[in-house]
Design a protein around this nucleic acid. Sequence first.
DNA 1: GGTTTAGTTGGAAGCGTTCCCAATCAGTGG
DNA 2: CCACTGATTGGGAACGCTTCCAACTAAACC
Lengths: 339, 339
Amino acid sequence: MNTTLDDIARRAGVSRSTASRVLNNHPHVNPVVRERVWQAIRETNYQPNHPARSLASRRSQVIGIIIPQPINTLFADPYFLLLIEGIAQVCNERQFSIVLELATSTAENPYRHIGRRGFLDGAIVASAVEDQFLLQWLAQETIPVVVVGRIMALPAIPYVDVDNRQGAQKLVEHLLNQGYQRIATITGPMNIVAGRDRFAGYCDALTAAGLPVLPELVYEGTFSEQSGYQAMQVLLQRTSLPDAVFAASDMMALGALKAARAAGLRIPADLALVGFDDIPLATAMTPPLTTVRQPIGELGQTAARLLLDRIHSDSFQLAVQRVVLPTELIIRDSCRRGE
Amino acid sequence: MNTTLDDIARRAGVSRSTASRVLNNHPHVNPVVRERVWQAIRETNYQPNHPARSLASRRSQVIGIIIPQPINTLFADPYFLLLIEGIAQVCNERQFSIVLELATSTAENPYRHIGRRGFLDGAIVASAVEDQFLLQWLAQETIPVVVVGRIMALPAIPYVDVDNRQGAQKLVEHLLNQGYQRIATITGPMNIVAGRDRFAGYCDALTAAGLPVLPELVYEGTFSEQSGYQAMQVLLQRTSLPDAVFAASDMMALGALKAARAAGLRIPADLALVGFDDIPLATAMTPPLTTVRQPIGELGQTAARLLLDRIHSDSFQLAVQRVVLPTELIIRDSCRRGE
DNA sequence: GGTTTAGTTGGAAGCGTTCCCAATCAGTGG
DNA sequence: CCACTGATTGGGAACGCTTCCAACTAAACC
């Protein structure tokens, strides 16, 4: 019932081989014949059969995007969507399709679909969560992989990352320049590189200014709004109050803002507050949030390009590539002195 | 190099047919043999070849999610992500993979990948944008499709939708009960059913209260923050001011809020403002936004179930199913009288 | 005019599964 | 003891394409 390449060949009066050559834009086909085949294709509205194609050619023109954490926690923020869009732009240009591999909360082994041999030509791991399943899969996988964010345990894997450390450092330096002295931080999870790096940047800035990193001013969060709320509550109960708080994600900054408000503090009059990510919500908050912008779309595009090049060059001999993109400090009202 | 089913069969001392039967859980296999085959599979860490499988069986265990609008406009809100998560939950349970079909701004024909024959067992259209390409594709496609939101032009396609009309009606009724008289609305795009339905609900509520629908209180937006800003500017320049504004999306409500602020109005003291969607940002706004919550995750789950059932029953004879999920009115401070 | 060369074509062997069909085997009832 | 049933197994033909290889053609060279 479905037209096959044989039908096309018959209709155009050529062999299947020639029809295939036309379809795949191979050279060495008589222009007249080529046009005849194209006409047959148009007339029949022929579409090549994908499984047959990938079975025969051993490539699928499909890449996977692996999002290795249950969405609920981080999903409220548009990070992944923007990342995916960046990837999709490049994939659309190069005729690749995208398979989404979400670790939903209900899945016992989230990377099941990826196991399908011959299904994917490559994969992008969308965030550097270092869980067991994932590491194991990455270590034994045979298709090219690019990670967004670094995975320390696997130095041999190419990655694209944002300069979290420098971004955080610039941000805290800005606070110091504004005259803040006791700067607290609500960190991201320490099992994620981004969490560690942003904390490192915080330390860098303090150290460079000759200030100590005080444990009582540090609290580990999970990047979620809720954990920001909680963290702020804890920080406010400690012996002496901070005059500024650096939350390692905008969502945590939002939670922190609510907690501070609930405790009767005014931002920024009583307490400065800054975040990281520059999600759209950052402009919507009152006061608008000072934060660090990541080039998320660009991150996705770069990851996709790296991956597709790797697939195309179809060799693992390529040097492991690493790209670190710069961040941008976005100054708004939430750390304005004396307002 | 890669283990094949033949290797498994040889290793277990059976024929390929039997190995295949074990793999696919067919009945009529001796339990002893079955265990022997499983053992071979475990030992070799065998994974079936996906293209070969779908070529032979004529099904792929893959569905597509089509997002038919460039992301930039709406992407700042987590709607799609939550929808996708709902779909993914059901797909994970039933061992289906998800292919994402994003209409990026750079793609001339966004539905190219979908054309691959045999690649998808079915598709979910994630929003009822009625553009030409999509309608054409839907009309001629041979795989089962479910639409999230209705497409009026194609009554034969099953859909899952949210009761936008009733939701908007309840919301506007609430405003009326609060004593607001001149209620303006910033509508969604009128080429989207959700836009039309929310406007219809607005009209329903006014009409039921014996009030006219005044053209000077209606302005068409695009669901985006920017268009909300613009719309509010226009509304505020008209002869007599509204005492309440119903924006058909939370993002537009945010834009409207900023415009109203810029014009020196206080919300809700001078002007009540309500939205639609209940995105996380709604709670983060000052004041928190009264809005209508859609069960987005449930929407996705239902769409996926409908689709997979349709695929499984592998017939188009099934009655076209339609599901309309209720919304929930979320009352917050942005329409509190006299504050 | 014969030989080389490059461009063009067809034939056929896979690619790794599924699944129909026939064959075998054990158990049952007459 | 034999035909009969049903559970179990193997053989082999698809599934629709890519791609290697060999063959053929026509132009170009000596």
